[in-house]
């Protein structure tokens, strides 16, 4: 564990807490894409299925449980919570996110570390996470007035993977040159997708 990765994980955790706070405090999910939240839940379920088979550290296991339960809680709120679900703007959240799932799955079948169930699920989760923010970015660009909690949520979500890129650079120079090209490329695409959001976020 290095400082970049820890900072990345904390930024990621913070983004989830900001979103939970927004939904809980305002009892509203206006401006939040449910499709992006569903994609993140799939990302975590596909990536953390080794939660019960491989123990890496207490930190690793606790964080996996936190990310799975929080993403599921957010999706549940947006689908089932009587007050929150009414504030979901369904006709605005129109991105065909099934296409993202299919594309990530096909990519994972072709490009993976090893052709095993676990590695294909892991690659699928990495590719899907890279594009999972798209429905949310489209929703933001619909010009609706973005409340600043939602804006902060997206900002921290974009920043976390940037810290991970620093983490990969650090590990490359300190731990030997493992091939992490799947994480590398996906991480660059993921952070790149936020570029115009960051541009407008700082201009605003």
């Amino acid at each position: 564990m290095n400082a970049f990765r820890f900072l990345g994980d904390m930024t990621h955790l913070f983004s989830v807490l900001v979103l939970l706070l927004k939904i809980y405090a305002t009892k509203s999910c206006s401006g939040v894409s449910r499709k992006t939240q569903e994609l993140y839940m799939v990302v975590f379920l596909a990536r953390y299925m080794d939660l019960f088979t491989d123990y890496i550290s207490l930190y690793n296991s606790v964080m996996k449980v936190v990310f799975i339960t929080s993403s599921a809680a957010i999706v549940w709120c947006m689908r089932r919570h009587p007050q929150v679900r009414r504030t979901y703007d369904k006709e605005q959240d129109t991105f065909r996110h099934v296409v993202l799932v299919a594309a990530a799955f096909v990519l994972a079948l072709i490009f993976n570390e090893r052709f095993t169930f676990r590695e294909i699920c892991w690659a699928f989760s990495i590719y899907l996470e890279a594009v999972a923010i798209l429905p949310q970015l489209v929703l933001l660009q619909r010009g609706r007035n973005v409340d600043n909690l939602t804006g902060q949520y997206v900002f921290f979500l974009g920043a976390y993977r940037a810290f991970y890129i620093l983490n990969w650079i650090y590990r490359y120079f300190t731990e030997g040159h493992h091939s992490r090209w799947i994480s590398w490329l996906s991480g660059l695409v993921q952070t790149g997708l936020y570029a115009d959001f960051f541009y407008y976020y700082f201009l605003r």
């Binding site: 994980d9 690793n60 964080m63 570390e113 090893r114 676990r118 590695e119 892991w122 991970y164 994480s183």
Partner: peptide, 10 residues
């Protein structure tokens, strides 16, 4: 684990 790749990151 036998697998070469160890995914120790979140």
């Amino acid at each position: 684990r036998s697998d070469a790749v160890e995914h120790d990151e979140l």
